[in-house]
Design a protein around this nucleic acid. Structure first.
Lengths: 340, 340
DNA sequence: GTGAAAGCGCTAACAC
DNA sequence: GTGTTAGCGCTTTCAC
């Protein structure tokens, strides 16, 4: 099948390309009759405008980038879902990039955005970054960026986040209420906004309880799951001074906690209570069912995408430090139940 | 920051644009010295080639499309992961499209690929399609398409799949071995290749056992989870002639089975044994741990992507009905355990 | 209301 | 080895 272009339509209809172009964009300066003729013919020929040729003229590709650490995580999967609903509404296209929590990869990915690959960017940053030259660089080129969930600390750009401090507090408070004496916090290395905030909430809850904040025990996990399992196992194996409560600050750490407890024969919730930050649909079906802090992942994705399209549409640079905060929910389940 | 183009570099370096262009693509017909000068300057200026401008000349955008029913499913999430690793290797970019199991949406999405939006397509088709004009249309335009997992029946194009028939057989056989008397198969409406094959395997296992294949009980589920829960509940509520084994042919049906059993107080595996097709990392942690048929999702994604790039690179149209089959694994766990 | 022409950023003949 | 030029498909003044 021959490629069908505006030029071909013009030729076939004995019109000028400019006329066809205008007709296709429903310009008022084209007669209703010609317009209809063009539209009909284009339709009949299955014409689709070459988006990238247009982009050369008007610098709008109709593509947006979504940069995330991973996709096999319920939060990100749902967020993508949310983003996609809005993108489809806006007839826009979504490019996905996985950083695998690797800052170098994130950097190199974003360097590719410097010249018109995408119109705008939604990003949840990788851990390990301390400064964000690759993000600032794009900002200077006036490429709109919206953060969701994990924001680049110190960079000013619109963002959609959850109440991480409060959730950290809530989770900890909940465990304390359930009688935990030693609660450990499983964090993720790498200077992440969400982890920092959750951790602060945790510390605050501990100190509010009258315990010294220095009594808090933070286990720093990494991106290496085998390593994490080992750390956790050696923590839980010891017979004395073992935590009786754990807050897993991200999904994968939650699952590892369950795995290790199962392996070591540690009973949840009797010997160990667990709260996990996760949006897993199967949380209620785990053994035992998992008490979670659940973020409104879908809505976060939607909101972030909407924000981005606002930036894209009205070039009016709305307040660049706009922040939308969507609250998380504590779902109390079996993993924090008091022995009866 | 001003936009930096090949033209600007040429001007600054007092060279012709073509010289710069060739230098940047490391053409042999450019002197080593000038080449270096151009490369250095481009680097210093943070020059990035406008991919879409090039695409106008050589019809290669560097973008590929991945069209899937949903992303909040472990199989697809892992498959995307696999695809992405290959894409990054190939310096290619991945556009994600979710059809939500909606054929009309799939069609309209793919119509957008008719004019150079992407170089090639990876697709796992939505349910409900009986013919695939939108796919054939793209084929006629010589846009490479590779199917993975769910193929369009009757359409000839390279594909990466699992041994669905055998897995259906294995799952059923396993349940029969575990003493199940009535095994119900939870299928998904919509003429899906994978479901059909799994179902055939199921029927064969039943009839091999000497039971009439007509004794097989297929529960057709839809894309509406509330509806599915209701169907399942009314099936499981009845006191007589209730199945004692269930094969959930996709992930979400597995979780619904667990949910409904929990709600109705039906004990798995004592009163009901369950095998689920899923790649959920949490399968082993469910209550009870779930016996699964697990597809090598990551590898499927990788393999499909590799196939696509082969098509893209050597324009040599390799055998269009090439098929790669990667086997699934049966993981026996608690949900099919015999009462001790 | 319609058309001619220039140009977006880049590539590839083809000249020199 | 380097430059000139045409053109990819589209949009947008500016004439008519």
């Amino acid at each position: 099948m021959a490629k069908i272009t505006i030029k071909k339509i013009a030729h076939d209809l004995k019109l000028a390309v400019s006329t066809v172009s205008k007709a296709l964009s429903d310009s008022h300066e084209i007669g209703t009759d010609t317009k209809q003729r063009v539209l009909d013919y284009a339709n009949q020929m299955n014409y689709v405008r070459n988006a990238y040729a247009s982009s050369l003229k008007n610098s709008r590709t109709g593509n947006i980038a979504v940069v995330i650490p991973e996709v096999a995580d319920s939060f990100f999967a749902l967020a993508i879902n949310g983003i996609e609903t809005i993108a489809q509404e806006k007839k826009s296209h979504v490019l996905i990039y996985l950083t695998q929590e690797n800052q170098a990869k994130e950097k190199s990915i974003m360097e590719d955005f410097r010249n018109g690959r995408v119109d705008g960017i939604l990003i949840s940053v990788a851990g390990g970054n301390t400064s964000y030259p690759h993000i600032r660089d794009l900002q200077e080129r006036n490429i709109p960026i919206v953060f969701f969930d994990r924001v680049a600390q110190g960079v000013t750009s619109p963002r959609v986040v959850t109440d991480d401090f409060e959730s950290g507090y809530k989770a900890t408070h909940h465990l304390l209420e359930k009688g935990c004496k030693r609660i450990d916090f499983l964090s993720l290395s790498g200077n992440l906004s969400i982890i920092d905030a959750r951790l602060e909430g945790y510390k605050k809850a501990i100190s509010d309880r009258g315990e010294s904040a220095s009594r808090s025990h933070v286990i720093v996990c990494t991106n290496d799951n085998v390593h994490n399992e080992n750390i956790l196992a050696s923590l839980l194996e010891r017979k004395e001074n073992r935590p009786d409560g754990i807050i897993a600050s991200v999904e994968k750490l939650t699952l590892i906690t369950y795995t290790v407890c199962t392996r070591l024969g540690i009973s949840i919730p009797d010997e160990m209570k667990v709260v996990g930050f996760t949006s897993l649909p199967s949380a209620a079906l785990l053994q035992p069912s998992l008490t979670t802090i659940t973020q409104p992942a879908f809505e976060i994705g939607q909101t972030a995408a909407k924000l981005l399209f606002e930036l894209l549409e009205k070039k009016s640079k709305q307040s660049p430090n706009k922040m939308v905060l969507l609250p998380s929910l504590l779902h109390e389940r079996g993993s924090t139940q008091i022995k009866t």
